[in-house]
Design a protein around this nucleic acid. Structure first.
Lengths: 205, 205
DNA sequence: GTTAGCATGTAAGGAGTTACATGATTTT
DNA sequence: AAAATCATGTAACTCCTTACATGCTAAC
């Protein structure tokens, strides 16, 4: 067990490098612009992650053939990373898992961002998983409210009100997404183990 | 440097124990109901924290004089914690700090929850600090959007749209709160560029 | 008398964060 | 040539999570 690195960052890095090769600095900016609202990563997180992915052979260094291709004077030039075949495999593996990691607060954002690479049934299970996660939270919330309806100063109350409203809004958002997914996906002969159909309804970019 | 424990948990525990003494199990429920929308703590977080606060003398054990007060047969009964004088001091200290810790994603919720114990000027600075933090984020966002308006699949786009909208909503919420704070606080001598007046107002709690 | 919930803990470790350090390139 | 920004990294640390372990107490 050394460096499993099963976090959000790994997936995000693999996903972005799948779109196009990049060097670290650029990667970080794309990272924080794509997932900006949810989390922000610093170099202190990114570079160790790249190092680890490199060690695992999931990504590789591309020799910089760009403009002013200085042939490495002491190794302190741009290092462009690209996804290897194993990396692509790992990415697809990660994106086919529809478990808690994909719908908890951490994780959902990234998984959603790469829904374009995700099978329709997995997408649906993740959306529904997140929705029921949020509904659980609403239940606990309301239960707590009726339990401790007693003395609560107005700030605590306002915080709860706002929190509740935010969660409700996300549920509505999910409902719309789910409805929209169902529409574009005719829900073909749903026969349990049916995942290798000839891909007609894949990623319509 | 041993166990500074300057996190969200410490503040939340001190704040809740300030309202009323409690034992750990109960504390955890209150914790997750008050801050429920933002974070959830497990026992594995809470008990070590209590232990550390105890070591620092910020909280103390209350002998259980409740119903069926079993006088400790092997020490595995309810342990009720209460805030000590030092604990109260520490709480007030934490709640008077209007720094990044109070308006970043992590800390804002807790600090807001205890605004009832916070001086009016500190409250205002925290609300404004958070607002400008969010506005920075909006700027970065929109800059990123105009930079990479190019190819973006619809899911990534939808994620950004939703993220943007959420942040905008929180800014509006903050605006309302700030306006409401200004109203209940006469804000002495407010004359446009007039910010260095001798503070006669302050905390009229 | 056994499930379900209350109640208290510990050991190991994960996933980043902070602060620091430094070189290369472009802009002014 | 100075300043800004691009670019890459490391060491130490923090706050919390996960999984585990245990015992008491009330309900069915």
């Amino acid at each position: 067990m050394s460096g499993q690195r099963s976090g959000v960052l790994e997936l995000a890095v693999l996903g972005l490098l799948n779109e196009t090769p990049m060097h670290g600095y650029e990667l970080r900016k794309r990272l924080n612009s794509v997932l900006g609202a949810f989390r922000a990563f610093g170099y202190g997180s990114l570079y160790p992650c790249l190092k680890e992915l490199l060690r695992q052979g999931l990504i590789a260094e591309d020799e910089p053939v760009g403009p002013t291709a200085k042939p490495l004077a002491g190794r302190k030039s741009k290092i462009v990373y690209r996804l290897t075949a194993e990396g692509k495999e790992r990415l697809e593996d990660l994106l086919s898992q529809a478990g808690p990691a994909a719908w908890e607060d951490d994780g959902f954002g990234v998984h959603f961002a790469f829904f374009g690479l995700t099978r329709a049934d997995v997408r649906m299970r993740i959306l529904e998983g997140r929705r029921s996660r949020l509904e659980e939270r609403l239940d606990g919330f309301r239960a707590a409210m009726s339990r401790t309806r007693e003395r609560l100063d107005s700030y605590t109350l306002e915080l709860q009100r706002h929190g509740l409203e935010s969660v409700e809004r996300e549920v509505r958002w999910l409902n719309e997404l789910i409805a929209s997914e169902r529409q574009s996906d005719p829900m073909p002969g749903r026969r349990a183990e049916d995942h290798t159909e000839s891909g007609s309804g894949g990623s319509a970019e």
